[in-house]
Design a protein around this nucleic acid. Sequence first.
DNA 1: TTTATAATCTTGACAATGTCAAGATTAAAT
DNA 2: ATTTAATCTTGACATTGTCAAGATTATAAA
Lengths: 208, 208
Amino acid sequence: MAKKSKKPSSYHHGDLKQTLIGHALSIIDNEGIGGLTLRKAARHAGVSHAAPAHHFGDMKGLMVAIAIKGFSKMILQMEKALSQTKDDNSLLKLKLIGLAYIEFAVQHRSFFKVMYHSELSKKGPYPDLEKESRIPFKLLKSTVQDCQDNQLIKKGDIENIALFAWSTVHGIANLLVDSQLKSKGLLGDDMQYADHVTNLLYTGLKYQ
Amino acid sequence: MAKKSKKPSSYHHGDLKQTLIGHALSIIDNEGIGGLTLRKAARHAGVSHAAPAHHFGDMKGLMVAIAIKGFSKMILQMEKALSQTKDDNSLLKLKLIGLAYIEFAVQHRSFFKVMYHSELSKKGPYPDLEKESRIPFKLLKSTVQDCQDNQLIKKGDIENIALFAWSTVHGIANLLVDSQLKSKGLLGDDMQYADHVTNLLYTGLKYQ
DNA sequence: TTTATAATCTTGACAATGTCAAGATTAAAT
DNA sequence: ATTTAATCTTGACATTGTCAAGATTATAAA
């Protein structure tokens, strides 16, 4: 609740940038990424149609800002999951960090959609975004490393094993976020399914 | 080369629908899904700006048409992969069908992007698309069933195991298609990596 | 073959959007 | 107090999706 609302002066908004991001996210929640327009976000915020440009440059700038914020949140959530176990239990850490990834995706669908939107990763350069977007995989990889150091999973190329784990949780996350499973009647509860699949993943790694 | 080009009469195109789909795909190849517009596809095909509407209704209709065609191609490629092994070797089938899924994605990025575009799965109803889109998973599931029948993988809930395999290959496919790995310097050759990961996946299933 | 009907394509129009330029208002710094 | 920078508005323009009405060609019916 420590918002720095600087007493709006009716001309200068005070915290327009974050406000616009908020409205953009709720628009994506309701109408999908295709429903997001700069003008619509501006209307929701009660400012003129050209106001967003001063904070984000263009449409892509808004998406980048959302993605960066999303990665920060996701990283926090992953780190929190890691800290919830003793240091020696790295196999559990591996499961928890994967679940945290999936949980973030389903809890913040709009963030996740923007974070991994094709158009963003394509043409940069957005150094801040690039930097943040690498951290989740780094966290995953170092956890895999811990597991190997503690001989909890068989030896193997760390990079490949981490990529395997990432592919799986990323795949689940995408299928869940796009309602590709629910729409096919394949799914009841999201996280219950995520738990099943991550179990398969990590017991698989154990006996690899 | 058995195209039914019906001698264009300069007013009636002859095969405008498929032609437009082709141009749409090449636009997506070059500029991403965001770069695709109905008018641009029309210009590339040399027809008026409103011509596409008569074949696809609206923008979403074009995407649906592309997605349906993409699923047909993908299904053919998966079935072809299945037919390349003796019936008894169902574990190899399981690997081949997964690789076929990934291979289709990297060979036909634009198709794949459209097929699993959030906006499509959201609001229907597009019965033809729904029907086609279920088949890949059905193929995967029946292959998993074969593996269990032949006692090549341990028993377990077929649905969950199939979803696990699907999540993994779908995750790889998405990361590859969006160049999320290459851009991070994590990858040399796409299919080589896919082979590594599917190996991990299926040996994992074997000892589950 | 002639005619009627449907399919296909064009032209013209409209509202909505991204983006730019120029100006108005307020905050911050000097 | 004055200058400078930041923030927001207004107005404009090209582009786009979409609709309606008309032109052209194919197809079917007579």
